[in-house]
């Protein structure tokens, strides 16, 4: 039990207002959204900021839900794939930050990394153009709207996305993504 206080202090120090580690289901995503929305509402955050945080959160959470790579079962007696992830929301003086972490197959890293770098290099105008290209299907070669989520997160955030690929084993890495939303409403 002695760890409890250090967890608490650590979260406080990092301005974490919400953290979840576990399996990500559609119902769970709904519950988290509802809870954070109530929290933002209750704290009298600026309407525009609140909407942006909510929007970015929806995309981040659904991105994990749709795109995480489940780890193969480790326990032969319990043949369930590991679909766990990490979701974290923090509130600093100037920004809200939303961090997600999930496993990803190493094969998928180069493409995702290239995409994130491209988005981080893009200007506001270029992001808008990229969004329209992917929306109308002339952008990225991949199917459907995959890819649109991250562009939308970058547009709503207005800041560079932070990311990291932490090697886990020869097949998997742990991918983390951080999106920030300014608490200072634009004039």
């Amino acid at each position: 039990m002695s760890m409890t206080y250090s967890y608490y202090k650590n979260m406080q120090l990092n301005n974490i207002i919400f953290v979840y580690q576990g399996e990500v289901t559609a119902d769970l995503v709904s519950s988290i959204l509802q809870m954070i929305e109530n929290k933002l509402e209750g704290e009298g955050e600026d309407r525009k900021v609140k909407k942006r945080v909510f929007n970015v959160m929806v995309e981040c959470l659904q991105n994990v839900y749709h795109h995480l790579d489940a780890l193969p079962p480790t326990d032969p007696n319990n043949p369930v794939k590991d679909k766990t992830a990490l979701l974290m929301i923090g509130r600093e003086e100037k920004d809200y930050y939303i961090i997600t972490g999930n496993h990803i197959l190493n094969d998928r890293i180069p493409e995702l990394k290239a995409r994130l770098d491209r988005i981080n290099r893009a200007t506001k105008e270029e992001l808008k153009q990229l969004y329209q290209e992917v929306l109308t299907g002339s952008g990225f070669s991949e199917k459907g709207t995959a890819g649109l989520g991250i562009i939308d997160i970058a547009r709503k955030s207005g800041q560079k996305l932070g990311y990291d690929f932490h090697p886990v084993n020869d097949r998997y890495s742990f991918f983390s993504l951080e999106a920030r939303v300014s608490r200072i409403p634009e004039k």
């Binding site: 909407k51 929806v58 995309e59 929306l135």
Partner: peptide
């Protein structure tokens, strides 16, 4: 009020 990116494709 809000829509996600998968809805944006459907709206289109």
């Amino acid at each position: 009020e809000y829509f996600n990116t998968s809805s944006s494709k459907c709206l289109l």
